[in-house]
């Protein structure tokens, strides 16, 4: 067994949340620059320039690129030969979030209960942790602070198998169209197809960890991603919803085995502040 101290996990979580909030991924930045050049709408061009300038300021000055520094979502792939010592695994993650949000001057946006008092927990915990046990002796951690302007525009639909690819396409386009300017376009569209209700949502979220310049390994899904991106960019919504040909930067699909009677689809929308960071311990 390889021993890993809980404190080390805490430190990595903290560092990843700070990095994710200050520094936009090069994949997103390069894509924004490319799309800024191609954008036909003058307002759209100006909006993209503002976003690029914003992202440069944020990483240079180490301030949050967006004031909604998100709900702390953590994906952990825990090697089964790892033994976590000197502390509690879940507490280590929460402590890492706490320290990042406090020391990084990030906004605390979590309420402890959704319906009655909605009292802020004041330290942005608890994190949402998705844990998977995998072979090996490493811990792979990916974090994504998820803004809710875009999370709120996400949708789920249990389609019929007979609805097929056209049904899925229609549902995705309809979701993006209804969202309009609200999720801060240009967006990244995360799609989960298959599984069960919660599995489809989970893989949709997970798809948002993928670079915007990387396509699905399965050619058929890769092609579907490209077709969807093309269709979405024909909607005209444009940067900030003020018109243009850049509504989405990428469509990322993940799929899973599903039941003979079902075709679940989740559309998890992410804004241009598509923040994620990864590390391996």
């Amino acid at each position: 067994m390889r021993k890993v101290k809980a404190e080390q996990i805490k430190d990595v979580i903290k560092e990843l949340f700070l990095k994710a909030n200050f520094v936009i991924g090069t994949d997103i930045l390069d894509m924004l620059i490319k799309r800024q050049k191609e954008e036909k709408s003058p307002t759209g061009k100006a909006v993209l320039s503002q976003i690029i300038e914003n992202d440069v300021i944020a990483s240079d000055e180490k301030i949050a690129m967006c004031q909604d520094t998100g709900y702390a979502v953590v994906f952990v792939e825990l090697g089964q030969e790892v033994l976590i010592v000197d502390g509690d695994f879940n507490e280590a993650i929460n402590q890492g979030v706490r320290e990042a949000y406090e020391e990084g001057y990030l906004r605390k946006s979590v309420v402890e209960e959704p319906l009655f008092e909605r009292k802020n927990t004041k330290d942005n915990t608890p994190a949402i942790v998705h844990l998977e046990i995998v072979p090996g002796d490493k811990i792979k951690i990916a974090v994504t602070p998820k803004g809710f302007g875009s999370e709120n525009m996400s949708t789920l639909k249990m389609l019929k198998p007979a609805d097929g690819i056209e049904g899925v396409r229609e549902f995705i386009i309809e979701t993006v169209e209804k969202a309009g300017p609200n999720p801060c376009p240009p967006i990244v569209v995360g799609i989960g197809i298959g599984g069960t209700v919660e599995k489809a949502a989970l893989i949709a979220k997970k798809s948002l960890l993928r670079s915007v310049d990387e396509r699905n390994n399965d050619d058929r899904y890769a092609r579907f991603e490209e077709e969807l991106l093309e269709d979405i960019n024909k909607l005209g919504i444009g940067p900030a919803g003020l018109g243009g040909i850049t509504t989405a930067l990428a469509v990322n699909i993940e799929f899973a085995p599903t039941h003979i009677a079902g075709l679940p689809v989740v559309v998890n929308i992410c804004c241009h502040a598509a923040r994620h960071a990864e590390a391996t311990i």
Partner: peptide, 9 residues
């Protein structure tokens, strides 16, 4: 409208 996500700017 202010540009969503241009918070640092």
């Amino acid at each position: 409208g202010a540009v969503g996500g241009a918070a640092a700017l």
